[in-house]
Simulated assay, not measured.
Amino acid sequence: MNDFPPYASRELVAERLPKIFPEGTPNRTYCVRELSASTVFAALYIGAVEETGVYLGPIHVYRMTKEQAAKPEDEERRAYAANILKKNGRVPGTRWYADNTREPIRDETLRDGLVAIGAVLRREDLPTTSSRPRYALKTEFAALFDPDLDGEALEQEIVAFQKKHLSKSALARVSIMLSGAAGHACGVLVSFPSGETRQLAPGPSSIISQAVIEVFAPAFLDRPAVIWLSESGNKIVMRDDKIANAIGLKIDAATNLPDLILADLGPAEPLIVFVEVVATDGAITPRRQDAIFALTDGAGFKRSQITFLTAYHDRESAGFKKTVAQLAWDSFAWFVSEPNGIVILRSSEAKPNRLIDLIAR
């Protein structure tokens, strides 16, 4: 484990939460009450902060004791984080809460409060039935509880956090992201442009695939069609040989095809969109691009008819952070949580385009 965040008492956390989440904040009560202060304190105490690999579970909160909370040493904090997860894990002292406080911590303070507001991250790669810890404070949020940060400097940091995370657009983005990640325990039902529906296996990749077909395709293509859709394990969910043959694309299942192949049948010369869905890995890289061009070149397609898209859940997802540096030039990136925007990675063999020429009018 890396160095812990500076030790902050529960009293300090409780004092700052109402300043961070002013009146008018959605579900503000869940974000500023004592149970919230206890939850944030426990996360800071065990070092459950974004990108540390350490996660908080409700058990870290409801089994905290008054005596344990008063021990600021790193070794004490590290031992508590690990030992409390063991079977019958306990620490001596006066408990803050009973075990039945688990649900209010999970459902109100975290799910409907701090996670919904974008202050806490929740792992989405764990089954909903898993008891493993899954929550971590966002780095910018955790930094607001540094005891050495006070006065005008603290006020400036709080204002910066509020502008970024509590604006209408920021809250809308979090809402879209959470609604897409929630549920789907029985699978993901996808509606195709043709009117057909298919059931995909539950999981984050299926949620992204669903959004590409139902949201991206109608928004960015004139007459969208799905030619190919597969799931992990190379399971073919949908294959439309009729459309493929009509536009001259030979689909060979033995070829290393991407997750999705879309076609825009609106232009005189159809546009074929090769899509990789990234929950954790597998973006459109230059090598992947070259392999697909070899397929389409051989079929006689102009390269102007071929484009590439990498689809992610969110810009802050682990998959995007892991693969963004690998993305190929002359491809696109799209995010489920911000469906109206698109990232263009544009190269130029000649001199670079001026910014004024790249700005959409």
Rank of each mutant, 00 (worst) to 15 (best):
211 A>C: 00
211 A>I: 02
212 V>F: 03
213 I>N: 09
213 I>H: 09
214 E>S: 07
214 E>V: 00
214 E>D: 11
215 V>L: 12
215 V>I: 14
215 V>T: 13
215 V>N: 06
216 F>A: 03
216 F>E: 02
216 F>L: 11
217 A>S: 10
218 P>Q: 09
218 P>F: 10
219 A>G: 02
220 F>K: 12
221 L>P: 02
221 L>N: 01
221 L>R: 00
221 L>F: 05
221 L>T: 04
221 L>Y: 00
222 D>P: 01
222 D>L: 11
222 D>Q: 14
223 R>G: 01
223 R>M: 03
225 A>V: 04
225 A>L: 02
225 A>C: 04
226 V>W: 12
226 V>T: 15
227 I>Q: 07
227 I>Y: 06
227 I>G: 05
228 W>E: 02
228 W>F: 10
228 W>Y: 12
229 L>R: 11
229 L>N: 10
230 S>G: 05
230 S>Q: 13
231 E>K: 04
231 E>F: 08
231 E>T: 11
232 S>V: 10
232 S>A: 12
233 G>Q: 09
233 G>P: 05
234 N>T: 14
234 N>D: 13
235 K>C: 02
236 I>W: 12
236 I>Q: 13
236 I>F: 12
236 I>V: 13
237 V>P: 11
237 V>F: 11
237 V>T: 15
237 V>H: 13
238 M>I: 08
239 R>F: 01
239 R>S: 05
239 R>M: 03
241 D>K: 13
241 D>N: 15
242 K>A: 12
242 K>G: 01
243 I>F: 11
243 I>Q: 10
243 I>D: 05
243 I>E: 08
244 A>Y: 14
244 A>H: 12
245 N>L: 01
245 N>W: 04
245 N>G: 12
246 A>F: 05
246 A>Q: 05
246 A>S: 10
246 A>Y: 01
248 G>S: 06
249 L>Y: 06
249 L>A: 06
250 K>R: 14
250 K>F: 15
250 K>N: 14
251 I>Y: 07
251 I>P: 05
251 I>N: 07
251 I>C: 06
251 I>H: 08
252 D>P: 06
